[in-house]
Nucleic acid binder design. Structure first.
Length: 582
DNA sequence: GCCGTTTTCGGCCCGACTGTTTTCAGTCG
């Protein structure tokens, strides 16, 4: 039973209750519960199993009991009973744009539609138009949506949307009637994957902006188009939503459309306490209150300040304690990309990288870094052309000679000689202690036997991070976003072992990984574990991944003091016990 | 189902858009 299992059950319950037409607030409570479980910064599974969930906001008596039953027995009777009322295949219908619980229920009750296949049939035959509330257009729209869903994904990695977002944003900003434009939503909050991208524009000519947006060459299909909002699919299937507001509404609208929904609810609650109502356009005195009309907010900062809060960075807006911290003035001073002075986990042509040592070094210097750690694969990663002992020793020598060259040239830069050493199935390392001792530092990572039991995998990682030569643990969960699930491992136990052995945990900022997951960093910092932001670059351009690293570190509430590669070269030399270059 | 210095009941966000309607329900965010 994992955290995600718990969250998924709560979410499915919410869907089932929607189908049954239950009280929407009850449904919201289950959804909120699922989100709370996902965000919780402790070991929620163990706490649920032990019935230790009291005092968690959003998890009341009923959800506590259900989570306890689920975590301790692996099953939940309430859920099983609900699920028995509808066929399993009904859930796929929720993925079709334009279909919600009411329509799905009607289709199921009246036309026995219980799958996408059957839905297609009733649309094609025209039967669907006979249902109350459905018409001829509905059938055509649904068929279009089915075809679209079959062709395209419905989630995208953050890294895969940066290019289209930049392109669209530039195009919006270039429009003469555009006063301000920003991306909002989960993209602005730096979620590791996004369903769609939201854009917000300030303009006094909304219809011109909308027209410009929907008629761009990269738009594949318009989903909706109104006077102030529009949604489109790009080629490739990414959904983009645009909202246009007046310039004086922009700050409130940006806060509103950045979300998260839960963060907004908390903000609105705070506004109400002060006698104001907050909506997507403005903050206004509550009806019947004697509060004064607030000023027009030029920026989100002013809005937050007016509500008595420190500014909450978008990355933190997940309703996981940031509002309370902003009230108390306890928000962390978040790390910035510019604070990074170097990085540790990168590859070269020696293993599976695309660029040589010299090219990687030149690119790092170009990026303004003071040091670049080379950690090519070790011999067991034969699929990645891992280095054996003699090749690694040659690479160490090559790095030393390049470093001498930097000194001669007066370049204030150092290559660090590391290795990404495989953690073998039993938790031992791929090189002997003697060779490990010759390296400047060691990144230890799992690359095989990923299907071990949680117990075995946890023991494996704990053994590895406890090895005195291991400097940091690479991509802790092994996940590949939207492609491969993380392996089963007790993350809090591994964090605890890292705390005891002073082992750093990597934030692998390759956008396919973004691993360790941002939700665990609060626990790690509480335990005093440091973070290393590593791009795992396999070519020079991938040093740009540090941008994702900074974003996800911010999302994990990390300050520059929590992140080891904010340290200067001299500090790192001292930390790794290296003699300075001469 | 959750929550509470207006606490054990009565609130809980709501506006834009579409299609099927003839004043509105459903969906989406």
């Amino acid at each position: 039973m994992t955290r995600e299992n718990l969250a998924e059950v709560l979410e499915e319950i919410a869907l089932l209750l929607e189908l049954k037409g239950e009280n929407p607030f009850k449904i919201r409570a289950y959804r909120g519960g699922a989100e709370t479980v996902r965000q919780f910064s402790g070991d929620i599974v163990t706490q649920a199993r032990e019935g230790d969930l009291k005092g968690i906001k959003g998890i009341g008596e009923a959800l506590q009991q259900k989570l306890n039953e689920l975590a301790s027995t692996g099953k939940l009777e309430y859920f099983e009973n609900l699920r028995a009322e509808f066929p399993e295949t009904l859930f796929e219908l929720f993925k079709i744009q334009g279909l919600g619980p009411k329509k799905i229920k009607a289709l199921y009750d009246k036309l026995e539609v219980d799958s996408v296949g059957r839905l297609k049939e009733v649309c094609e035959s025209g039967e669907i138009a006979d249902l109350a509330g459905f018409g001829t257009k509905t059938g055509a729209k649904i068929l279009e949506a089915i075809a679209f869903r079959e062709k395209n994904a419905d989630r995208f990695r953050l890294g895969d949307v940066v290019a289209p977002v930049t392109q669209i944003l530039d195009s919006l900003k270039a429009h003469p009637d555009c006063l301000r434009a920003e991306p909002a939503g989960s993209y602005r909050r730096a979620k590791e994957t996004v369903h769609d991208v939201d854009f917000l524009v300030a303009s006094s000519q909304p219809e011109r902006i909308i027209k410009h947006f929907v008629s761009a060459e990269w738009v594949d299909r318009i989903i909706v188009q109104g006077a102030t909002k529009a949604s489109v699919y790009l080629e490739g299937g990414l959904q983009c939503d645009l909202r246009v507001v007046g310039n004086e509404e922009f700050a409130c609208a940006l806060a509103y459309f950045t979300g998260s929904k839960e963060h907004n609810v908390a903000l609105r609650g705070l506004a109400l306490e002060k006698g104001y109502t907050l909506n997507e356009y403005r903050l206004a005195p509550k009806e019947g209150s004697d509060s004064k009309q607030p000023p027009v907010f030029e920026s989100e900062e002013q809005l937050y300040r007016f509500l008595g809060l420190d500014f909450v960075a978008p990355e933190l807006r997940e309703n996981s304690g940031e509002v309370e911290a902003a009230v108390e003035g306890d928000l962390p001073d978040l790390i910035e990309l510019e604070n990074l002075r170097g990085t540790f986990h990168n590859h070269t042509t020696a293993s599976d990288g695309q660029n040589t040592l010299e090219e990687m070094a030149a690119a790092a210097i170009e990026h303004g870094l003071q040091y670049l750690g080379i950690a090519d694969h070790s011999k067991s990663s034969f699929q990645a052309n891992g280095l054996d002992e003699s090749r690694l020793r040659s690479q160490i020598a090559e790095i030393a000679s390049l470093n001498s060259k930097f000194v001669e040239e007066g370049t204030d830069f150092r290559l660090l000689a590391g290795s990404e050493v495989d953690i073998l199935k039993d938790g031992s390392l791929d090189f002997d202690d003697e060779l490990l001792g010759e390296l400047d530092y060691v990144v230890a990572s799992v690359h095989n036997s990923m299907t071990l039991s949680e117990e075995a995998m946890t023991a494996r990682l704990i053994k590895a991070v406890s090895h005195p030569s291991v400097t940091m643990l690479g991509h802790l969960s092994g996940r590949l976003l939207l492609q491969r699930d993380p392996y089963e491992v007790d993350v809090p136990a591994v964090i605890e072992a890292c705390a005891e052995s002073n082992t750093i945990i990597e934030l692998n900022c390759n956008p396919w990984r973004l691993d360790m997951d941002w939700r665990w960093w609060k626990l790690a910092t509480e335990r005093g574990v440091k973070c290393a932001i590593n791009p795992d670059a396999h070519r020079t351009e991938q040093l740009d991944y540090l941008w994702f690293g900074a974003q996800l570190a911010r999302k994990g509430w990390l300050t520059r003091h929590d992140v080891i590669n904010t340290r200067t070269l001299a500090e790192i030399e001292s930390f790794l016990d290296l003699s300075p270059l001469k």
